[in-house]
Computed example of a mutant assay.
Amino acid sequence: MAAHQTVDGLPHLADQEYTMVVRSAHQLVKATLTELEIRFPPMRRYTEEHHRRTAEDLFAGFIVRTGAILAARRVPARSLDPALDLLALQLKEFPRACRTPARAREALRTRRAPALTIPGPGKPA
């Protein structure tokens, strides 16, 4: 028998959790990147561009994993395309930000997340 989850008997908490995560998404990404600098010291030398690319890679990886989970549930991974379309539509005024859903869509299409690379002297981001 599976362990009883606290939210099982309190369904309103699941909605509250979702709302809180959505509201704090920016802070969650920022905190993750900050912690990555501590755990992976070469990231301390990353430029803003490098940080943005890392966040894009993490998002693309998340989309690929989500697609795999959906496929295991017999839901086509391409069902994520409308969400990526809507995200891109909302970001249309922000060309750099539009790269995030585009890279995620490409990763989903090829079924692999972009490799996280470590930029160094003379290496492009």
Rank of each mutant, 00 (worst) to 15 (best):
P82A: 06
L80S: 04
A60Y: 03
A31S: 12
A31W: 11
D85R: 10
D81W: 13
A25G: 03
L86M: 11
L58P: 01
R74M: 04
P124F: 00
S79A: 14
P119L: 08
R103W: 02
R65W: 13
C98D: 01
I118L: 14
D81G: 09
P42N: 02
L91P: 00
K92Q: 11
E48D: 13
P95R: 03
E93G: 11
F94I: 04
F59S: 04
C98P: 01
L28F: 07
T19D: 10
R74L: 09
T54H: 07
V64P: 04
T47D: 06
R99Y: 07
Y18D: 10
A115P: 05
A77Y: 00
R74Y: 13
I63V: 15
G122Q: 05
E35H: 09
P124C: 01
R52K: 09
F94T: 11
E49M: 00
I118E: 05
T34L: 14
L33S: 05
A14C: 02
M20G: 01
A72Q: 11
I38F: 11
D85W: 09
T34S: 00
A60R: 00
G120D: 09
L84A: 10
T34K: 07
R103E: 14
C98W: 01
L89D: 13
D15N: 02
E17Q: 07
A102H: 10
A25S: 11
L33D: 03
R78S: 15
A83I: 12
T100S: 10
L28N: 04
K123Q: 14
Y18E: 13
F59K: 00
P41D: 00
H50D: 15
V64A: 06
A55G: 08
K123M: 13
T54S: 08
F40E: 02
R78I: 09
F62R: 09
A60M: 06
R23A: 15
A71E: 15
K123L: 14
A113L: 04
R96D: 12
L13P: 03
L87E: 04
R53E: 06
I63H: 06
A71G: 06
V29C: 05
R111H: 12
V21L: 14
R44T: 03
R78H: 10
L36E: 05
T117Y: 07
R73N: 14
K30Q: 07
L80D: 10
Q27G: 12
R23W: 12
R103T: 15
L80E: 03
T47G: 05
